[in-house]
Every structure is written in C-alpha cells, then in structure tokens.
Amino acid sequence: MKIIKQVGIIFLICWLGLVIEAALPFSFPASIIGMILLFVCLLFGILKIEHIQEKSDFLLSNMAFFFVPAGVSIINYLDLLKSSLLPILVICVASTFITFAVTAWSIRLTMRLMNRRKGS
C-alpha cells in the first residue's frame, strides 16, 4: 500500500505539471513544472522525503532503462548525425571542458566563501 501511495503522489505532481502547462499562455515543459512543484512541496514541508523515498530510489536506480527508447530512436537519424559529426563532437568536447572549468571555479569560490565565513 505504501508504494501505491508514493506512486500516486508522484503521478499527482506530474499531472499538476501537465495542468499548469496547459494553462500557461506560453510553452514550458510539464516535466520541469512538475520538478519545480516537487521541490517547492519538499522545501515548504508539504511533502516529506519519506513520502516518496522508496519509489524515487527505485526510479533512480533504474534510470538507465528510461534512456533506452531515446537511444534507440537515434538510429532513425543516423544519416543526419553522420553529416554533422564534426560539429557535434566539437560541441560535446567544448561543453565538457567548459562544464569542468565552471565546476572547478564554483567549488573554489564556495571553499573561499566558507573559509571566510569560518574565519569571521
């Protein structure tokens, strides 16, 4: 019964995201709206982590399974990917290095701020 309740909570939040998306005058992904709703509910104590812990652990441990359909559908666009292989590779490599650099910079900044707070 506990799992059914947790699935119901997650589906309710997803459904609310869909309702809000339909009501918005501009396009915005319902999945993002649902994640924001879940975050707000957890932040303000409307939901406790125990309410969705087991189901979310299950979904996270099986996340790779959910990428299979997207990976398989790439085969439909193989000719398009072949023609754009070099730009895609350059973008992937560049964005990886930019992500590494920004992460290192933000960690250094955070450490500096934490040390400054600790010192005062």
Rank of each mutant, 00 (worst) to 15 (best):
I46C: 05
I46E: 03
F97H: 05
P87T: 06
A22L: 15
V19K: 13
D79L: 14
I36W: 10
K55V: 02
T110Y: 15
R108P: 01
F44T: 04
T99H: 12
L42F: 05
I75H: 09
T103W: 05
A104S: 09
M1Q: 06
I36D: 04
P87K: 12
V7L: 14
Y77D: 04
Y77K: 09
F11A: 07
D57H: 12
V102M: 12
A94L: 10
L37D: 02
F67I: 04
L59I: 05
S84H: 14
Q6R: 03
V40M: 15
L42G: 03
F11E: 03
S83Q: 15
S84D: 08
K118D: 06
Q53K: 13
R108A: 14
W15T: 13
V93E: 07
F97D: 00
T103K: 11
E21H: 15
L109G: 01
C92I: 14
L59D: 02
A22H: 15
R117Y: 05
L78W: 11
I36M: 14
V93Y: 11
I3E: 07
G45A: 10
A23Q: 09
L78H: 06
M63V: 15
V40H: 10
L113W: 08
F66W: 05
F26C: 10
L18Q: 14
L16Y: 08
C41P: 04
I52R: 00
F11C: 07
L42T: 01
P29V: 08
I20G: 06
K82W: 11
F26D: 07
K55C: 00
L24G: 10
I98R: 04
L16I: 12
V90G: 00
F67S: 02
L109E: 04
G71T: 00
Q53M: 04
I32T: 07
F44S: 03
L38V: 00
A94Q: 01
I75P: 03
V68I: 14
G17F: 10
A94W: 04
D79Q: 14
K48N: 10
C92E: 12
K48E: 10
I98C: 03
L86T: 11
K82P: 03
I49M: 05
F44Q: 03
F58G: 01
I33G: 09
I52Q: 00
I10S: 05
A30M: 04
L89W: 08
R117E: 04
F100D: 06
P25M: 04
F39S: 06
L89Y: 05
V7E: 11
N115D: 08
A104K: 13
G45P: 06
I13L: 10
I36C: 10
S83W: 11
M63D: 07
F100N: 03
K82C: 04
A70Y: 14
C14T: 11
T96P: 03
P87C: 08
C41Y: 12
L16Q: 08
I75N: 07
L42R: 02
V40D: 08
V7F: 10
S83F: 10
L37K: 08
E50W: 01
R117L: 06
H51W: 06
G45I: 11
A22S: 15
L38K: 01
G119P: 00
L16A: 13
